[in-house]
Amino acid sequence: MAKAAAKTKAAAAPASVERRPALAGRALSAPGVKVEMLPPAERISLRAPEASLAALSKALGLTLPTKPKTSATKDGRTALWLGPDEWMIIDEAGNDPLADCAKVTALHSAVGISHRNVGISVAGPAAAATVNSGCPQDLSLEAFPVGAASRTILGKSEIVLLRIAADAFRVECWRSFSDYVFTLLSEAAGDAAN
């Protein structure tokens, strides 16, 4: 499994070209909320049947959550439950979850999506109201507590939403949708404190 992915990890020659993340450094502050692009992170889309979860959890160093709309975080690495056999792993500590999964022989699919997605931080007392400008889910702490994670909708774009604190969210979207998502969140931020 994941042999091909492992191969890309092997070579060690330094990149001679720079990485240019989408919307790098963009940020917007409004009363009660700040919207900003997050630095690049390592990400994989992990698919696996239940029988493989123990092996994968061990390899990844965290317990893959099995309850809908939840996540698990350890040492800068977060596993988001997205579906009954689907997780997104986000690693902000610079470690490569694709390489970790490559060692696992149990049935699974791990696909690198580090560059497919971008992360946007929405933080502040008006963060939930900002996201609710385009996201139809109930974002109260009762319905969407800290650690809750879900694929959902923001306006006309699909996003993955992770609540990292009572007043802070991580919004993940595909790279080419980032301009739309960031702009919508920025415009909504200006209204959210009202």
């Binding site: 385009g134 306006g155 790279r175 301009d179 739309y180 909504a188």
Partner: peptide, 15 residues
């Protein structure tokens, strides 16, 4: 609502 101008529909651009 917000869905006007640049936010009418997502404009996708490549890298």
């Amino acid at each position: 609502g917000h869905a006007r101008g640049a936010l009418f529909d997502p404009t996708r651009r490549t890298a």
